[in-house]
Simulated assay, not measured.
Amino acid sequence: MRFQSILAIYVLFWTLSLFIVLPFGVRTPEEEGVETPAGHAQSAPHRFSFGTAALRATIVSAVAFALFYANYLYGWVTIDMLDWTQ
């Protein structure tokens, strides 16, 4: 597999992982015990740290990509195994 392909697939894993980890650890102003600012949604996070979300996404995507790449190298699950029509 070429480096460009590895990088593109990892970016896809990272983006998916970011959307998966975004809701974890988010607390609303109501949960924090402060008043919701005017014009903000009740469900809007009180504090958001992109750095924390990016770090979590990096860890999750690294594990997922490592499993994907190991499967690519060793062929644990192949397309032929997933064909249920036969």
Rank of each mutant, 00 (worst) to 15 (best):
H40K: 15
A41N: 13
H46V: 08
P29L: 04
A53M: 09
V60Y: 07
G75T: 07
V60N: 09
D80P: 00
L55P: 04
L55C: 12
G33C: 08
N71D: 09
Y72R: 10
A41T: 09
A64W: 06
N71C: 05
A70Q: 13
A44M: 06
T78Y: 01
V34T: 11
V63H: 00
G51A: 06
S61V: 04
Y69G: 03
N71Q: 05
H40T: 14
F50P: 08
A66Q: 10
G39Y: 04
R56C: 05
I59V: 13
V34H: 08
A54F: 02
T36V: 15
L67P: 00
H46Y: 14
G33T: 10
T36G: 11
T78E: 05
E32Q: 14
E35W: 11
T36N: 13
D80G: 05
A70K: 13
Y69M: 09
S43Q: 06
E30L: 08
L73C: 00
G33K: 09
F68R: 05
I79E: 14
F50Q: 05
A64H: 10
Y74P: 00
G51Y: 01
Y74L: 12
W76R: 04
N71L: 07
W76A: 02
S61G: 06
I79Q: 15
P45Q: 04
S43T: 10
E30V: 02
G51S: 02
F48D: 03
A38K: 15
L73N: 04
Q42W: 12
T78R: 10
G39S: 10
Y69H: 09
T58W: 02
E31Y: 01
L73R: 10
A38F: 15
G51L: 02
